[in-house]
Amino acid sequence: MTFIIIFIWTLAAFAQECRGQITVTQSPSITAEQPGGTVNIKCKTSRDVRRLNNGDEELPPPKNLNFLWETPFRLSLTWEKPEDLDSDCKVNYIVHVYKSQNCSYKGDPNKKSYRVSHLSHKVNVANKNGLCISVSTNPENCGDRGHSRLTTIILPPPGN
């Protein structure tokens, strides 16, 4: 029983130390068991917590990625700042433009990447074979937080 109480207090202390004030809720809130018995505790966090392979917490992704063709060869991209971003966390964004509808080929020689500090970017590009555009939130000064998952849009070629 003492171990369980220490475990719960440890979880509570950890939740208060996390950036973004993540709340951990235990179900059931109180439980008792004889020494040597088994106790099952379920915990739920107040928001999605993702960890990267190295243990760092992932930043939230950009929201509402949109595009506008200003000319047949000039694409304007805009997005919104991610939710749940700490006020002391400084970020930039990585924009990837693939000259195809396939976003998964990492060694693609037709992929262009841009690092930007604002919520928009203009790209000079032709849309012959379709495009895959992705944007991620990238940490500048966010403690041990890592880059976000990609927010992606796929543009078919003209006439499709």
Rank of each mutant, 00 (worst) to 15 (best):
N92G: 01
I30C: 03
V49S: 11
P158D: 11
A32T: 14
D108N: 02
P61R: 08
T137C: 08
G159H: 01
T152Y: 01
G55A: 01
R149E: 15
G37W: 11
C132W: 00
D108Y: 00
P158Q: 06
R74K: 10
S100F: 07
R47G: 12
V125T: 01
S29A: 02
A32V: 14
K106W: 15
N92F: 05
T10H: 15
E70Y: 02
I154C: 06
N129A: 14
D88L: 09
S113Y: 14
P157T: 11
E17N: 14
L150F: 00
P62W: 01
V125E: 06
C89V: 03
S136A: 08
A126N: 09
D144H: 12
C142F: 03
S113A: 13
S46H: 07
G55C: 05
K122F: 11
P62K: 02
S104K: 06
D108R: 01
P109N: 05
S117R: 06
N64C: 10
G37P: 02
P139S: 12
R149K: 13
H147A: 12
I8V: 06
K99N: 11
D86F: 03
L85N: 08
T23L: 13
H147E: 13
L131N: 07
W9S: 08
R19A: 10
Y114N: 00
N138I: 05
C43M: 10
C103V: 03
T78D: 11
S148K: 02
K106Q: 15
K63G: 05
S29T: 03
K112M: 06
S134P: 04
N127M: 07
L11Y: 00
Q101H: 06
E140K: 09
R50E: 13
K122S: 15
K90R: 15
C103W: 02
K63W: 09
L59S: 00
S148M: 03
H121M: 09
E80C: 12
G159P: 07
T78Y: 08
K112W: 10
S46R: 05
K128V: 15
F73Y: 11
E140R: 05
F3W: 12
N102A: 06
I133T: 00
T2A: 13
D86N: 05
G107W: 11
V39A: 12
N110I: 00
D144I: 09
R149S: 14
N129G: 13
H118G: 09
A12H: 07
K111L: 09
R47C: 13
L52A: 15
K63D: 12
N124R: 04
C132L: 07
P139R: 08
T71P: 04
V123N: 03
R149N: 13
T2D: 12
N138K: 04
F73S: 09
D108P: 00
G36N: 11
N64M: 12
V125C: 02
C103F: 07
A15C: 04
D88M: 05
S104M: 06
T45M: 10
L85A: 07
T38E: 13
K81L: 14
H121A: 08
V91Y: 09
H96P: 00
V135S: 02
C43I: 10
P82A: 03
D144V: 08
